[in-house]
Computed example of a mutant assay.
Amino acid sequence: MKKLWDISPLVHPDAPLFPGDEPYRLQWTARLSPQCPVNLSALTMSPHVGAHADAPLHYANEAPDIAAVDLDAYLGPCRVIHAIGCGPLIRIEHVEHAAEGLPSRVLVRTCERADTVWKDEFTAYAPETVAWLAARGVRLIGLDTPSVDPASSKSLDSHQQLLRADLRVLENLVLDEVPAGDYELLALPLKLAGACASPVRAVLREL
């Protein structure tokens, strides 16, 4: 059996999320009993809680929702690049050492341990790094922090670069135990009509 790395954080009521986002809530609508044959629950949450895939609709009106995006970007060969402690932005010099034979999916590990509480300061992508990766055939990028843009950004320059290059993105991954190198990525979004994002159960499998 090929080894799997689960790179998704636990989704729970205290999971870190952007201020103002809807937290995860689970409500039981039916419980197993002599009168009821099953347990049933209902969920309320922002689709940006936990590991998730942003849709272009998240950062551009009239852009595709998550149900409309092609799935092939979320499944296939992937490279994990370590840039631990690189500072507020992942710059080209932090990833260019791993550019030879680059597959079309790139995840960058920036943390020794992924945060389990919300912090205003985290590492994001420099927009020129997004463009540089796209120019080398990358179709999906990801990282182990809440966003490809800083929390304080109003222009969302890296998200807009994703839009221009038609890249897909995964955010809030957990890469704590993943060595740098090549893997198979499996991280399919749900087919949620009209949604700006979707939770994913992101997994890496050894090649």
Rank of each mutant, 00 (worst) to 15 (best):
K2F: 07
D6W: 08
D6I: 15
V11W: 03
H12M: 04
P13H: 06
D14S: 11
F18S: 04
P19K: 04
G20I: 06
D21S: 14
P23H: 11
Y24P: 11
Y24W: 15
L26G: 05
W28N: 10
T29D: 05
S33M: 02
P34C: 08
V38L: 07
L40W: 04
L40I: 10
A42G: 02
L43C: 11
L43W: 06
P47W: 00
V49K: 01
A51I: 01
A51C: 09
A55T: 01
Y59V: 08
E62W: 13
A63R: 13
D65C: 12
I66H: 02
I66V: 13
A68Q: 15
Y74M: 00
Y74G: 00
Y74A: 01
L75C: 09
G76Y: 00
P77N: 10
C78A: 01
C78Y: 00
R79F: 01
R79N: 04
V80W: 04
H82Q: 07
C86T: 08
L89K: 14
R91Y: 05
I92L: 03
I92P: 03
H94D: 12
E96A: 14
H97R: 11
E100G: 03
G101F: 03
S104E: 09
L107T: 02
V108N: 09
C111E: 15
R113M: 12
R113I: 11
R113P: 05
A114M: 15
V117R: 14
W118P: 06
K119Y: 13
F122P: 06
T123G: 05
T123R: 09
Y125I: 04
Y125M: 06
E128G: 03
A131K: 10
R136D: 08
L143G: 09
T145M: 07
T145V: 08
S147L: 07
S147R: 07
S153L: 08
K154G: 15
S155K: 15
Q161V: 07
R164A: 13
A165K: 09
L167F: 01
R168Y: 00
R168M: 00
R168D: 00
V169R: 00
V169C: 07
N172T: 09
V174D: 10
V178R: 11
P179W: 04
P179H: 03
A180P: 08
A180N: 02
A187Q: 09
A187M: 07
P189D: 02
P189A: 02
P189I: 04
P189C: 08
K191P: 12
A193K: 14
G194F: 13
G194M: 08
C196V: 15
A197Y: 12
S198C: 04
S198E: 09
V200K: 05
V200S: 01
L204C: 14
R205Y: 10
L207I: 12
